[in-house]
Design a protein around this nucleic acid. Structure first.
Lengths: 339, 339
DNA sequence: TTGTAGGCGTTATCAC
DNA sequence: GTGATAACGCCTACAA
């Protein structure tokens, strides 16, 4: 509406030159105290707000970091986003978020948007952009990849050991006496999903339990596929005493699917998820889940980018954040020891 | 890293003037076809991305809309954010999100950040900014308030009838035979929370059920206070056969609190929430809840801002989005009819 | 210590 | 049709 207040306006009001105003505002030491006061007073009175576009244009830096997230409504990405938000607080950098919707072309468009806005760096959460595109981006911009490990970009990837996490979950179930363990996978094209399946198989092999393909259902990381998995197994007559879902959302779906058939968790079937979302602590029953330090990953990503920005030469190796199992109440000891 | 490609670079590569490049890129009709081709080719080859700062500076419009949200991790705000995202898709406007954390000073800082970035309009979700500040903002910028009704700014507020919603929930429980209905309120300083309490009282009064202050527990809209409410009532020996929580998150907390005491929902106690979050559909049991059209509210907000931007004179009255009750499985008919 | 002037990348207004 | 050129708001040598 009303034209915004500019430095020129302040200069006029305080009866000084625009450079004096600029210097004062930027804390330059060499300004006469009285003028300084007059400028500050005028700026406050007029309600001056610096124009980031103009500053960015002349400084060549916008002090904003672009974050490509996949789904603003997903609890998974939100936890990471919250960490990023926290990680930048006080650094002067401002994260701005855009959505890729898990679609390669949306992601490209979103990144272009970010670059148009002159972001100083990029944080990419998951996604389907292929490695080549990521390499191209990495060559031009400070970049951090979260939840994804790309060959040649290890230094800039923040990932967790998904194989180990899945192994942890499956081994826990085995130790609790389960031998027929269903696994609901994530989207098969995603590395995370593949790694978790791998961890599941590994744990079975170590315990000398034969891998049964019937016990693996391909899900899509959404609640719906958890329900479908259960319905499918029940319809096929597949026997199982426990389920390991590749994320918590699918575990919730499975839980509901079981409830509808009057099968209790953990009384009849044990359940383990992956991600340890905030909601899982208060789920019913509280869900045993592989703890991904999502918030911390966001924080780390923010720090990593900051380092690349301030000290681009000093190569930094992102720390490997540990994966642990949050044991809660959704697993029960299996007395039946059904074959 | 590498300097970004500019119009100047394209001009050099295509051997034309920068004005011709600019015209071509902006789709001006009067450019010779061959030059046009050369420009487009060079732009593509060089990977040109326009500089939004520079465009914003000269055009006076940034084509971005600032959205002040409170908590990026809250499922409530995320649903609205998703609607906003969808509402702007295809309009050329780009929403950018910042967090206020439910704190007045953070909110002010966040809004200043947005203004620095020359947003063309503001969408404010909830928050604690006082009416005077909002009026000041509204005087200077296109503005839409979501989930909040401010005197004098009705035209720019998108709110729902919380009293009616709470009445709906409570009346449903009464019709299902419940007379001792606990209510977990939201943060007492928030208008929404007060309105929902009001709706609860109204429904009781209509049914000639005496209001019992013991049955009202002051929560804070987070899961934890749902657990506390249940613990409190149980410790006090307060009798109830149903609970109406002022939002779904507290309802989930209550459900867990009851589960811990081996009280079943809906077998022993019925439960109704407010917001109808996506998670409530797959909760256990699926939660009966007052449906807030969160996604639609976001969409509406986006549209409203767009209208203010394109036709500032034509006053628009935001439609009052209807509140309905999503009846699911967390309420059971109360045979006991306890006094 | 202060002011003037040039330039960041883009669009728009002029002449040609 | 096309190409200089003046803004847009700000910062920063450079001069004074």
């Amino acid at each position: 509406m009303n034209r915004n207040v500019t430095i020129k306006d302040i200069a006029k009001a305080a009866n000084v030159s625009i450079s004096t105003v600029s210097r004062t505002l930027n804390g330059s030491p060499i300004v006469a105290p009285d003028k300084q006061r007059r400028v500050m007073e005028a700026a406050a009175r007029l309600g001056y707000v610096p124009n980031a576009s103009a500053q960015g244009l002349v400084r060549g830096r916008s002090m904003t970091i672009g974050v490509l997230t996949q789904d603003i409504a997903s609890p998974f990405y939100n936890e990471v986003a919250r960490g990023i938000d926290a990680g930048f607080s006080g650094t002067g950098y401002q994260p701005i978020f855009v959505n890729g919707h898990w679609q390669s072309q949306d992601e490209s468009a979103a990144i272009t948007t970010l670059i148009r806005h002159q972001v100083d760096g990029l944080i990419i959460l998951g996604g389907r952009l292929d490695d080549e595109q990521l390499h191209k981006l990495a060559a031009r911009y400070p970049l951090v990849l979260v939840g994804r490990r790309v060959a040649g970009l290890e230094r800039r990837s923040l990932a967790v050991d998904n194989v180990h996490g899945a192994w942890l979950a499956t081994t826990h179930l085995i130790q609790m006496g389960h031998r027929r363990i269903g696994h609901i996978t994530g989207v098969a094209s995603q590395r995370d999903a593949l790694d978790r399946l791998e961890g599941y198989r590994l744990a079975l092999a170590e315990a000398n339990i034969a891998f049964d393909p019937k016990l693996v259902y391909e899900g899509d990381f959404n609640e719906g596929s958890g329900i479908q998995a259960v319905d499918h197994w029940l319809a096929q007559g597949t026997v199982f005493s426990a389920i390991f879902a590749a994320n918590d959302q699918m575990a919730f779906g499975a839980r509901l699917g079981l409830y509808r058939k009057d099968i209790r968790v953990p009384d009849d079937v044990s359940l383990v998820g992956f991600d340890d979302l905030p909601a899982s602590r208060i789920a019913l029953p509280p869900l045993t889940s592989v703890h991904q330090p999502l918030f911390e990953m966001g924080e780390q990503a923010a720090q990593l980018i900051s380092q690349q920005l301030t000290a681009p030469d000093r190569p930094t190796t992102p720390p490997l954040l540990p994966l642990t199992l949050s044991v809660r109440e959704s697993v029960r000891y299996n007395r039946a020891l059904a074959p």
